[in-house]
Design a protein around this nucleic acid. Sequence first.
DNA 1: ATCGTCCATCGCCGATAGACGATGAAGGGT
DNA 2: ACCCTTCATCGTCTATCGGCGATGGACGAT
Lengths: 97, 97
Amino acid sequence: MALRLAALSHPARIEILKRLSASACCSCREVVDHLDLAQSTVSQHLKILVEAGLVRFEADRQRSRYAVDHAALAGVSASLTELVNSCCPSFSPKRHD
Amino acid sequence: MALRLAALSHPARIEILKRLSASACCSCREVVDHLDLAQSTVSQHLKILVEAGLVRFEADRQRSRYAVDHAALAGVSASLTELVNSCCPSFSPKRHD
DNA sequence: ATCGTCCATCGCCGATAGACGATGAAGGGT
DNA sequence: ACCCTTCATCGTCTATCGGCGATGGACGAT
């Protein structure tokens, strides 16, 4: 769990996640254009996200495709929620359904 | 948000959070006894958690008191949930109530 | 006043993260 | 064949993390 959270604990990677989900095009280049970071840096962040299991990677020829693993991301969220609940079961945070 | 998640992205700090919430006694010493880490290290982790706003600190004489800020913790969880939702609004993770 | 306890802080260190440029591999276009 | 684009990887640099022991301050007890 700490590993997943560590992957999320960087502003650039959160931006990358948003970008990945916002656009149908999920190439590394796409992210680089929007993020004002060097291509190597973005590639590195993507690698971290993939290794954390939060992003899936498909090598479509040389056009690499990255996609958010929604289930995994939701899983992290659920884990965190579980931690919150285990820490303070009597505390009921408002949930917006 | 990344800051909060960074504070959570360390196994020791997660353990500390659990310990803080499990016990009514929230002294630094208490945590040290249960965590097999040096006192200075625990104090450092506590400081990080406090700076992240996840733990509240009350200097009760020399007996320092640490307590989980349930609302803040729930807030992080909510933020993450929000991120998940914004990333994939059509995706409905199973919630176990 | 002196000791012991609890705690925060400092200094130090090895390891890791995060950024970059350079390089090379893989393909597409001409 | 040649070039251009895309991308991953490598090497390097700096900054930060994470751990520890040591130190010193604050306080209670004797």
